[in-house]
Nucleic acid binder design. Structure first.
Length: 307
DNA sequence: AAGACGAAAGTGGTTGA
DNA sequence: TCAACAACTTTCGTCTT
């Protein structure tokens, strides 16, 4: 049996995510892609021997959305068609081809530019390849539906990336997307909502637990605090303290409490900063947690230990 | 002096008439 | 389309460590 990596080589995180379909192993803490050229589990490219070649080859060339024409181009007519046309038809043919050319080059130019931007932002955020691909797919669809009109290309790129992150459970906050893309936070959120609505993409609210690993590692909290935070999160969900609230605020509060319990105190400000919320929000969530779940004993316990 | 706490007013988005 | 509403933010004064 092959031995897989157990820890992220970049940040030492233990939350590795194995995406079989894409053949990647991703660190959920820092987004580092540890392996990305593993065996493709989905399709069979190989030919076993020359006789069976045609039967076993089941797919065409690999298609990717991060290339501006998806590796497939379309043109109106080939040269061979020309010989069959005369007079008016021939003119019509040229006119059509000219239009096709203009339209497609306009779209292609836009896509080229947009995908370059997409790659830039994606690598800035250290997003895994699979998310980048997804974002490119979403963006391409958005262009085809004419959703970019009236919006800046950059904001649609940012929105697509945000949506792709959410779908792959590798959430980044709107603030991070905003910082990486240079688009205002409101605008990113706005276009995100717009394109997901128009394209009918699932709008599952993100799970606070997905943020825990990343926040915990930027706060340099121990693995115990991290898993305790997740436990707190689960019981909070059972007590219905989570619905309607911002997932980042809840995740931040859970981390704050569990850090307190494990004697790894962080200030509210520190936690607030990495989570992209304010201290006030943390306080509110924190208070709710203490009210409903009785955690005060445990906090006092660790306090006494210190003395 | 810094952090924690809470009140009050403001912002942007959702919802329901 | 508009107003009520909930969540979150900003700001600021007070208390605690």
């Amino acid at each position: 049996m092959m031995q897989f990596v157990k820890k992220c080589t970049e940040c030492g995180g233990i939350n590795l995510f194995h995406n079989r379909a894409k053949g990647e192993i991703i660190c959920k803490d820092c987004g580092l892609v540890l392996e990305d050229k593993m065996v493709d589990f989905d399709q069979e490219w190989r030919e076993f021997d020359s006789d069976e070649g045609d039967k076993k080859r089941r797919t065409g060339a690999p298609m990717t959305y991060t290339q501006y024409d998806q590796g497939l181009g379309t043109e109106v007519g080939q040269k061979a068609d020309l010989y069959r046309l005369e007079g008016k038809d021939k003119n019509k043919f040229f006119r059509l081809r000219k239009w096709q050319y203009r339209i497609s080059t306009a779209i292609e130019r836009n896509l080229k530019l947009a995908l370059a931007e997409l790659k830039r932002v994606s690598s800035y955020l250290k997003l895994p390849k699979s998310v980048e691909e997804e974002a490119a797919r979403i963006y391409t669809q958005a262009v085809q539906r004419g959703l970019v009109r009236g919006r800046s290309m950059e904001s649609v790129v940012a929105g697509s990336l945000y949506a792709a992150c959410r779908r792959h459970d590798v959430p980044r906050t709107l603030d991070e997307l905003s910082e990486a893309s240079g688009i205002e936070k409101k605008e990113v959120g706005r276009t995100y909502r717009f394109i997901t609505r128009e394209l009918g993409i699932n709008i599952m609210p993100s799970n606070p637990a997905d943020y825990i690993a990343r926040f915990a590692s930027s706060l340099k909290l121990s693995a115990e605090s991290q898993s305790r935070a997740i436990e707190i999160l689960e019981s909070a969900q059972r007590s219905e303290l989570t619905s309607g609230r911002g997932p980042t605020g809840i995740a931040a509060a859970a981390l704050y409490v569990s850090a307190l319990i494990h004697g790894e105190k962080r200030t509210q400000r520190e936690v607030a900063d990495v989570a992209g919320v304010t201290e006030v929000t943390i306080r509110n969530r924190y208070k709710e947690l203490l009210d409903r779940l009785d955690l005060e004993k445990e906090i006092k316990k660790t306090k006494k230990k210190k003395e």
